[in-house]
Design a protein around this nucleic acid. Structure first.
Lengths: 244, 244
DNA sequence: GAGTGGTCTAGACCACATC
DNA sequence: ATGTGGTCTAGACCACTCG
């Protein structure tokens, strides 16, 4: 009887979806599946791998395989970019989570703009930009990385070129420079992460990422920031509000 | 030397990312990997499976494993919902692809609203709704499924309850009923598909899906439609425009 | 130390695609 | 008819966790 691994996975999946096994529960281990289904150990292993690759379970070597837990962050694009937030000195994150996330691995440097960035910022190819990259932790788990690009000629001597951008963040600083961002375009993709990205976000196998590229424009349609974000898809629900 | 499968996968990935192997190319087969690396056939198989699960390659049984090809559809949320489109009798799809997609598997029926839908439509639990489900093909490939829910009391005797909703689609019909949708909220998640969903969209292993739940509101903030969509993530780039 | 998942081997059979 | 990926077996060793 081939197709055994899939069938075992189907059985376990059904038990998860029926609620018999709830998030955090330990799944039957390989030896127990070998006994129950009379298959080779490797077949049992592959059955469990199927669930892991579907994002339904997480394997913890030396311990067991567990039903995965979800607790998505709600990210409301419109609210978080509302001027009222950052103008009041708040982080745009205050719209997403009650507790402000930990920002780590902040790196700021100046370099020539990558191809695509210079196009989006309407700069000459290779023009200098300030590059701010950082990582966000919520409840000790990395959920997002972000890299912002801003025209160096505009922000070089401001707090934006410092690790700490001050109250209200870089948008408040841009406003002070007469380059207040009022319009935004977000371009969004979902895909599987590279190994590097999986490492950076500490992702379980079988978790996709959401890639967002946001360009911020001033009232006279000048692009002043490109922000390239990478989200752990399992940690997020995104919301957008539109009117026709 | 353990870790062999990963290393083989790393080698192949590097050759893909360097451009030595381009989309559509055939990867070295299992027998050739067995010879080159001196490993068991199953190890070679697993190495190829890693690339497939990362979405970088597609296996075609009996033929070979190939570098995957991408040709995303650009879906601009704002444009497609603009009244000017559907008011002119166009499909909202005309914003996304030059050639109108094929709509198949259209099914319309009336049934009690599922929990979440009745909540979003602000209906009594179990109130009757018209359910329209359909699938969209672009260039013969299924790229999206969609299921709409509309209050049955509002649309029961209109073209919306028919498979063909006429020029401009259901939004034009809603407008004729004095329930023109002018505001929309889209809630978006990315995840790995279930087997069922993988089947429906004919997805390669390692391809995530994007789940969008859109609620349409009238000018007086009455919800009149909930549309639950499932997109093949590899076939789409989504764009949202916002202003603060 | 016992149990866990992770990985590998060397062989086997199958269904399928391509020629 | 040949070659392909898909899957299975039965055994093995490893690194890890947990009590």
């Amino acid at each position: 009887m081939p197709e055994t691994a899939r069938q075992i996975a189907d059985d376990l999946r059904a038990r998860i979806e029926s609620g018999e096994l709830t998030p955090g529960d330990r799944l039957p281990g390989e030896p127990s599946l070998v006994r129950k289904y009379g298959v080779a150990k490797m077949t049992a292993n592959q059955a469990l791998k199927i669930l892991v690759s579907e994002g339904l379970a997480v394997a913890r070597p030396g311990s067991g395989t567990y039903v995965r837990e979800f607790r998505p962050i709600r990210r409301v694009a419109n609210d978080r970019l509302a001027k009222s937030r950052w103008a009041a000195g708040q982080s745009i994150w205050s719209a997403d989570v009650a507790r402000r996330p930990l920002v780590t691995d902040v790196q700021v440097h100046e370099a020539p703009a990558p191809h695509q960035v210079s196009r989006l910022l309407e700069l000459d190819p290779g023009a200098p930009v300030i590059i701010r990259s950082r990582k966000f932790l919520v409840e000790d788990r990395p959920v997002q990385t972000a890299t912002s690009y801003l025209p160096a000629d505009l922000v070089r001597d401001t707090a934006i070129a410092q690790p700490d951008t001050g109250p209200g963040g870089s948008y408040a600083r841009l406003a002070e420079l007469g380059a207040e961002p009022v319009r935004f375009a977000e371009e969004l993709r979902a895909r599987m992460p590279s190994d590097e990205e999986r490492m950076a976000l500490n992702l379980a196998a079988g978790t996709p990422v959401i890639e967002i590229c946001r360009t911020a424009f001033t009232a006279d349609d000048r692009p002043v920031e490109v922000n390239q974000m990478l989200l752990d898809a399992g940690s997020y629900v995104l919301e957008y509000r539109l009117s026709s």
